[in-house]
Design a protein around this nucleic acid. Structure first.
Length: 606
RNA sequence: GGCGCCGUAGCUCAAUUGGUUAGAGCACCGGACUGUCGAUCCGGAGGUUGCGGGUUCGAUUCCCGUCGGCGUCGCCA
């Protein structure tokens, strides 16, 4: 070891010791006769002093060449700082190292990203010079948190007999769901491996293989457009259990996640986490991952709207749609007329055609431009329905159910944030359960909803269904008969872990009954040939004594983001990709030699 | 693919309705200084205003295109 101690560990107990530290020059203060350096490593900062009489003149002289981010090795005596010179802002602020000798291990160019700066520079610079960005304390804090959380998860599950098993990265493309990243085969020209979107099929095979508790910290790949909380490669805590029902799986995660909260946030979270059905979540919050840190629930007003003379409301209800509202308590002062216009524009981004609203006046009556379409008595009914109090702002969405969900969820989220309706440090854990087995191919989020007049019906009636999770998801036992009679109403043994309005993970109990599996394939339009082609190996395996099984995968990047109070996922990944899925440091993806392509039997289309 | 925000010195930002030689702080270079801790003081250097085109007597500013970063919709079993 080049050093005897780190830059974060020396204190009064070390007075008088001769120590050697290594690290980066965080800052330096040239004082003419001498020089002070704050030396940094991942453990902390220690002040190194190049001053007479402790430091020889030659050492002081060379110390003058030090600049930010130079790497040095310094040997000296640990000494108390002079009377009144302690720095309470530093954990090592009571001591300093008086340099007797030092060695310049490496110089640095002027850094475009300064690890010691208070504020981080533009993200493009940080990504290009990631090695500098990674020296920033915030980045280090996050990556240490990530490392510690993963260790906690592994330890916790290992103690419960989970076996950590790796699954292949080079697999077979299953053309459902997200786009695959493909890897061409040299040995089999014209054939491709696919990188796994998740280890889904492998972990089911492991259950059939008898490893009744499997876990893996698994890298997953999906070639879809990026978001603040989405990267093309990401990491899941993937697990699967045999001989369990969905409460068993959720119970394991309750324990695991509450343990994480205790160890890494110092929070005692009651278990089991509260559960809400998908239908209830959509009805009350308009979203399958509701943010339960605050209320402002959606209130249905369709029956009242039907009684009004407001043509928008009447026609929507008349054609099977819904009129729903949220009440932004005290929102009147936050959102002036201009503010409401902003909200309207925002709602339009989510497909709203407009935004109807009421203000609640000081006398408790409803005001606003649309009140003229409502009788006084009806207005009073509205006021009672939405619990109107002076100063409130009531916002309506009138459309088919799915569209009202989307708009009201967007507004609720925005207003909750802007009006600070929750403590930004709060953590809320819950489950959303009983997801629909299927959703309409046409994409509306809510299976089985009434279509408004004029909207296109699915081709060939209502028979086009898509699996909401994957085709092996088991229906609720009591809903098996709905597969035949009314698939849109059929709910699955599926569960999502929701933290602060984010989907932090999701899982299902898998079908292990061949007859049910066949019914699901039929509904999805997967005929025997296709099924065999895509998942033949799994169907084969299911015939050799498959135990009932199910599991879940947690998004580790998102968990770290939430636990670390970060607002994007890139900040908890050491080497993330940009929104265009490039790596600004390595400049991946890049061109390859024509020779490499020729070996793979690939020719560029140009 | 659509919509929106951003791009000026190494970094963070400024620059009047479109008008003189594009400024400041930090960093950098030179000098001064024996206890600083965002050291201080004096001086200096540093610019294809992302790129290309257009409008104009004149463009950092207005318009079009393009590249890049971010956010978002579509997309994400």
């Amino acid at each position: 070891m080049l050093r005897t101690h780190t830059c974060g560990q020396l204190d009064e107990a070390n007075f008088g010791e001769t120590v050697t530290l290594c690290g980066w020059v965080d800052s330096y203060r040239d004082h003419g006769g001498g020089l002070f350096v704050d030396l940094r490593d991942r453990y902390g900062l220690t002040q190194v002093v190049f001053n007479p009489p402790d430091s020889p003149p030659a050492v002081i002289e060379t110390s003058k060449t030090l600049r930010a981010e130079y790497v040095i090795k310094v040997t000296g005596k640990v000494a108390p700082r002079p009377e009144g010179m302690a720095n309470p802002k530093m954990t090592t602020g009571k001591i300093e190292v008086r340099a007797v000798e030092f060695e310049l291990l490496n110089e640095s160019l002027t850094p475009p990203v300064s690890p010691s700066a208070k504020e981080a520079p533009g993200e493009d610079l940080r990504l290009k010079h990631r090695y500098l960005d990674l020296r920033r304390p915030e980045m280090q804090r996050t990556l240490f948190l990530r490392s510690a959380m993963i260790k906690s998860m592994r330890d916790y599950l290992a103690a419960q007999d989970f076996v950590d098993i790796e699954t292949p990265i080079l697999g077979r493309s299953t053309p459902e769901g997200a786009r695959d990243y493909l890897v061409p085969s040299r040995v089999h020209q014209g054939a491709f491996y696919a990188l796994p979107q998740s280890p889904q099929l492998y972990k089911q095979i492991l259950m059939i293989g008898g490893y009744d508790r499997y876990v893996q910290v698994a890298r997953c790949f999906r070639d879809e457009d990026l978001r603040a909380d989405r990267q093309p490669e990401f990491t899941q805590l993937d697990l699967e259990m045999a001989f369990v029902d969905q409460d068993d799986v959720m119970g394991v995660i309750d324990g695991l996640v509450s343990n994480l909260a205790k160890e890494h946030l110092g929070l005692e979270v009651a278990t089991p986490f509260p559960k809400m059905t998908y239908d209830e979540a959509m009805e009350r919050f308009g979203h399958d991952a509701p943010d339960l840190r605050f209320a402002m629930e959606i209130i249905d007003c369709s029956d009242l709207a039907a009684k009004s003379d407001f043509s928008v409301f009447k026609s929507v209800v008349g054609s099977g749609g819904r009129v729903r509202a949220i009440n932004a308590k005290n929102g009147k002062s936050q959102y002036s007329r201009r503010g409401i216009d902003t909200l309207t524009d925002y709602a339009k981004e989510f497909g709203a055609k407009g935004l109807a609203w009421f203000r609640v006046e000081e006398d408790g009556s409803l005001g606003g431009t649309i009140t003229k379409f409502f009788g006084e008595e009806l207005l009073a009914e509205f006021a009672a329905r939405v619990d109107a109090e002076p100063g409130d702002l009531i916002l309506f969405s009138a459309d088919n159910f799915g569209a009202t969900c989307k708009v009201l969820h967007a507004l609720r989220t925005k207003i909750g944030r802007e009006m600070q309706l929750y403590d930004s440090q709060a953590m809320h854990f819950s489950w959303v359960v009983e997801f629909p087995m299927f959703e309409c191919d046409e994409g509306h989020h809510y299976a089985g909803e009434a279509k408004l007049a004029g909207e296109t019906e699915p081709v060939g009636g209502a028979e086009r269904w898509q699996a909401m999770h994957h085709p092996f998801t088991a229906p609720l036992a009591k809903h098996v008969e709905l597969l035949a009679s009314d698939p849109g109403k059929c709910r699955a043994q599926a569960y999502d872990l929701v933290i602060n309005g984010n989907e932090a993970g999701g899982g299902t109990i898998r079908i292990h009954d061949a007859h049910v599996q066949q019914q699901v394939f039929d509904l999805l339009g997967i005929d025997e040939t296709v099924a065999k082609e895509r998942f033949g190996f799994l169907l084969d395996a299911l015939r050799y004594g498959a135990p009932p099984h199910g599991g879940i995968a947690l998004g580790i990047d998102r968990l770290v983001m939430l636990f670390g109070k970060l607002d994007n996922i890139r900040d908890c990944i050491a080497f993330p990709k940009t929104q265009k899925a490039t790596d600004m440091m390595t400049e991946a993806p890049g061109e390859v030699d024509t020779r490499q392509l020729r070996e793979l039997g690939i020719r560029r289309d140009e």
